[in-house]
Design a protein around this nucleic acid. Structure first.
Lengths: 348, 348
DNA sequence: CTGAAAGCGCTTACAG
DNA sequence: CTGAAAGCGCTTACAG
């Protein structure tokens, strides 16, 4: 070997990790690819070395060598810009770690979902990631199943057959949030529903209704308005709720965008939040802590869920490749109630 | 060789072309890379073979072998969630088209910018993309220059030596927007400045002041408050502006987040937008069309700028590799004034 | 002006 | 459960 090794600007390689962990490159490769046949202790050592060396597999090498799925299609159509923001950060991050090439397509309605999906499939994606609300459209499911491509649905309302999902327990979260309002003494409620095309909308409403019922509140003290997860729809719904007599002392919106709209309207009507009316949301997008007063809401780990979606998808692709016919993974993530400034004691 | 060659889904390889043209793979490589040192007749033979075999070089192999840059670091620290959203969509898209691996790091302040940058460099990125405001921090510039990595600054205030930039003419845009307000009859103005750590803040202010001055408006009819590009800072600034006597009839905020905050406050004070006060922003983030009334603002092609940043960066990396010492590219993008509902005739 | 050798960082296929 | 060998398709560095 008269030639010396070319520059090492590339950072750590699989060989460095192997040396550091005291195993062969082959074993490192197995860990990266989540091969189950690696002893737990070995895996831990390798993972530690990966972390320490900040090792990121080379996408080029993996795809050259042949195994890695390199293309992941991400199809989105999300009305909430802040939700999407979080999601993309997670997706981009996962893409950089896994070396997968994420191909993004946006669509505006169900019609264009068809076209966009076809486009992704033609580009040769190995699998698909569907953020809400696309992940809940029956038509999209059908097309996805037809394509035979492994798919992960994020924040789907419930487990889906043949499609992996990552979600939280929307009903329990809404129930907990409502209990928070009840504990503050609220007895007259307004609820702004999410888009009817998403199961989670229904689940959030159900959690709310169950908690209210458990507390012995009569249905007449509860007003429900339809929203569509957008700021604008929240504005309309809040208008109806706040002009009703008697006025609710607390409004629970099924996402942060609508809660924020409700707050804006309350201000325009000269109401103080939370002295006159408490307003709470759902998702804990960055907007929740940006606005004033800051929003009490349900925290959903959106970026993490996007990251996990990528990992789960790569796993599914491999499973399918090995003709493993188990049901796709179904991950349930934890949520948290975040109490900020927009909720307070009910006015006397 | 007991092992047989793996599937040939890839189509023709450089070896096939070489064999067909009766030369070595090396010569084919030279032709592909437009190396001038190849005899014309040889080149012609190779090109014919390439055509005949429909040969397309493998991106993965090229990048592995060393010619194509594969890793791009994206360091961000942006207070505006909607701006970032747009930016990431563009970055993710460009990443999928170029096949480059984008490694994302977030930092919270200048201190952590140091750490985050070091992290990216250690991960072996070939170049860096800096969205605002990082692209304007002197300390970040210094560190970037020290690293010697090709870098593209997006939406920097002005051309930077040694760093490629993509930007719009902030001053001209602010000037145009102010003319729009003047044409509507406004004569008393409030202006919410952007973060002082960004040159564009100053430029937007300057454009505004120049237009106001050109129109013969006295400085006493103009109130300027400091903001920091965040919703919260916009709220504070708007509070000062709207409580002043006489009240301005138009407020120009240096970005959409602050404009949106000003609108929220105006509503809280019982003012109608635009009947009592016109409010305009800058950036045209998705928020601008989400809120109500929708926001008149300056459209900046954020996602496109992120996409171009990626292309420009790959070019810079190649330039640097060939020791081409020209000044890095400086791209100026067009802007547009988008007139929506939040601006109207001055109250009489 | 052209080519033979070595290697990029990873994986598949095989062996133990 | 783990590893040694061969190879993915291309390029850099060297030699002629």
């Amino acid at each position: 070997m008269t030639q010396k090794r070319r520059r090492a600007i590339q950072g750590a390689t699989i060989r460095d990790v192997a040396a550091s962990a005291g195993v062969s490159p082959m074993t490192v490769s197995r860990v990266i690819n989540k091969d189950p046949g690696v002893r737990a202790t070995t895996r831990a050592q390798v993972e530690a070395a990966i972390k320490e060396l900040r090792y990121a597999p080379s996408a080029a090498a993996r795809s050259l060598a042949g195994s890695t799925p390199c293309r992941v299609g991400l199809l989105y159509d999300n009305p909430s810009t802040s939700y999407l923001n979080e999601f993309l950060v997670g997706a981009l991050d996962a893409s950089s770690h896994t070396g997968a090439q994420v191909m993004v397509e946006k669509c505006i309605d169900t019609e264009s979902a068809d076209v966009a999906l076809a486009k992704l499939l033609q580009a040769g994606v190995d699998g698909l990631i569907l953020p809400p609300p696309l992940c809940e459209f029956a038509q999209v499911h059908k097309q996805v199943r037809l394509s035979g491509k492994p798919t992960v649905a994020v924040a789907a309302g419930r487990p889906l057959t043949g499609i992996a999902t990552i979600r939280i327990d929307n009903e329990a979260a809404a129930h907990d949030m409502t209990r928070h309002l009840l504990q503050l003494g609220h007895r007259r409620f307004g609820f702004i529903k999410g888009h009817p095309n998403q199961i989670s909308s229904e689940q959030r409403l159900n959690g709310f209704l169950a908690a209210v019922k458990d507390a012995g509140i009569r249905r007449t003290a509860v007003r429900i308005e339809q929203g569509y997860f957008t700021y604008r729809s929240g504005l309309k719904a809040a208008e109806k709720l706040l002009s009703g007599k008697p006025r609710p002392t607390a409004i629970f919106a099924a996402n942060d965008d609508m809660a924020s709209a409700a707050m804006s309207l309350a201000h325009r009507l000269g109401l103080d939040v939370p002295a006159d009316v408490s307003i709470v949301g759902f998702d804990d997008t960055p907007m929740a802590s940006a606005i004033w007063p800051s929003l009490t809401t349900v925290h959903q780990p959106i970026a993490d869920m996007a990251r996990m979606a990528m990992d789960l998808l790569l796993e599914e692709i491999r499973r399918k490749r090995h003709h493993d016919s188990n049901q796709p993974g179904q991950l349930l993530q934890p949520y948290r109630i975040i109490i900020r400034e927009s909720s307070g004691p009910a006015p006397v």
